[in-house]
Structures are given as structure tokens and as C-alpha cells.
Design a protein around this nucleic acid. Structure first.
Lengths: 137, 137
DNA sequence: CACTTAGTTTAGAATTATTATAAAGTAGTT
DNA sequence: AACTACTTTATAATAATTCTAAACTAAGTG
């Protein structure tokens, strides 16, 4: 079972974090899934703590998520509600936004004909497309 | 001068707002310019109130900006710092993000080869591209 | 033009997301 | 087993935004 957790522990260690129980639980919760996971820290905290007798503190959620994000294991993005969202899919990809709901779009589903040059002295770090949806009436 | 303010007053009226002095001043400040203006409510408040003896309250800035945005005279967008930014350029366009700085990209500078279909029951409202920049080293 | 009313402004309180703090606890080395 | 640096936690602090209620004003009415 230590073996089973190795992958989650490794992510923590390479993010500069000691693999404490709380952190390993968070890492497992985030990365032990087949499908991409989109979440806010508040949502993560609620869904994990709901099932636990010993709750993990808010600060630990924030710290852990930040470190994982800085190490590149999570991707941050923002909607128009002043809350940070995180995505376990760190490969370059795009999003549908539908009333606060987020759906991944695989990178190869969007290709460009024309892209602008970066201003002098700068280079392009990444290109992200957001497709906003509305209901068919 | 009432005539001169007509355009700013009309934007307020068609946003469902009575053209009070405060609101007309805000509307003029926002729209009486040649170039696109990007701002947060806090920035708007500071730059306008700096020059005034009679300050406009925070709530009035928020109310006015919201109404103008809902009426479609302002466009809202978010960076990764949990603050709402607004853009007086409401035409479909894209952005460079460079360390918190925002630069407009004209719509025709980006064209697509391929775009995904909207999920069933949905249609595409708009497509926005963000190109993140970093320094050349 | 005075009157009335619904909409507005404002200061300040409340809320939400997030970050900081400092005391008590624990991982990992010696 | 002991030590030390890193963690956890509850709580306070901060920042952006929204709410509230009392004082104020635009604009329609007679």
C-alpha cells in the first residue's frame, strides 16, 4: 500500500512537500482518477472532509494545492466569479464554459490558421481557448 | 454640453440606470477615449476619485460597472488573481496576458482551422483566446 | 413649479476567497 | 531516543465584492 501510494507521494516530494498523511490523502484524491478533475479549493475541502472524522484544515488544502500547482501537477484557471479553479489535466488543452461548468477540450480539437507574433522581447508561453456556451432556444 | 454627454447618458439609460452626476462621470471616464481601456473596479475608483473633491462611493462604481456590463457595454474577464477585469472593447477580440498586463489582439489576427462542435442542446456564444507571454531569455 | 415616489448614493457592515500567524505536532535525520 | 526543521491547525487578517438602511435626488404628475 506504500507502493500503491508511491505515485502520489512522489508528486508531493517533487513539489517540495513532505508526504504527511493529510497531503498524501489530498494527492490521492486528486490524482487517483481516470478522468480529468476540475475543482476549487473550497469544493475539494468539502468533498474530502465530508467523509472524514479527522478534518483537514483549510490552510493545508491551500498550501498543498499551491505547491502542486507550482510544481506543474495542477493547472489554474479563472472564471468570472473571482475564484481559482484547478484542473488535474495539465496537458495543453482548452475549455468549454457553460454556466460555471467546465468541460475539457482536447488540444487537437482546435487548430489555428493564423496566430499573432509575440511583442518584441516576449515569447508565447501558451495559448488557451475558451468557448462559452449557451442553450439552444 | 448636455449634448456632448448624450452618448454617455444614452449608455446609462439603455443599461437601465438613471443618469445621475456620478454615473455620467463614470460613463464619460470609461467611454470618452480613443483606445480600449482595461481596468478593475478598484483601479477605476482610485483613478477617478484621486482628482475629485467629492468622491464617488465604492458601491456606485460596482453598481454602474455591473449595469454597463450586463447591458453589453463592457466585457468582463478574469486573470489568475481573483479580480474581475473589464474591457471597454466589447467587439469580439482576444488577449495577450503578460504578467498581469493585458494587451488586446484584434479578432482578425487569429483564425481557426478547426473548432469543436458544441455539446447537444448547446451552441457557441463566443470563442476567446488568451495567449500568455513570457520574457525571451 | 411644488409634490411624490421610485430609484440612487453612501458609509459601513457582511460575505467570500484567500493568505498570514503562531502555537502545538510530526517526519526524518542523527 | 532526541533534535530540528517542516507541518498542521485554529484563528486572525486581508482583499474583492455585495448587502443594508438611511439620507438624497431624478423625473413624472398635477
Amino acid at each position: 500500500m506504500n507502493n500503491k501510494n508511491k505515485i502520489f507521494i512522489d508528486k508531493l516530494r517533487s513539489s517540495g512537500l513532505r508526504p504527511t498523511n493529510q497531503r498524501v490523502d489530498i494527492s490521492r484524491f486528486l490524482f487517483n482518477r481516470k478522468k480529468t478533475f476540475h475543482f476549487t479549493v473550497e469544493q475539494l475541502k468539502n468533498s474530502m472532509n465530508l467523509k472524514r472524522s479527522k478534518k483537514i484544515s483549510t490552510a493545508t488544502f491551500y498550501n498543498t494545492v499551491h505547491a502542486l500547482k507550482s510544481a506543474g501537477y495542477l493547472k489554474e484557471f479563472s472564471l468570472e466569479n473571482n475564484t481559482s479553479y484547478y484542473d488535474t489535466n495539465i496537458t495543453s488543452h482548452h475549455h468549454f464554459f457553460d454556466n460555471g461548468k467546465v468541460i475539457d477540450i482536447k488540444s487537437d480539437k482546435i487548430t489555428f490558421n493564423k496566430l499573432p507574433e509575440a511583442p518584441k522581447g516576449k515569447k508565447i508561453k501558451n495559448v488557451e481557448v475558451v468557448i462559452r456556451l449557451e442553450n439552444n432556444n
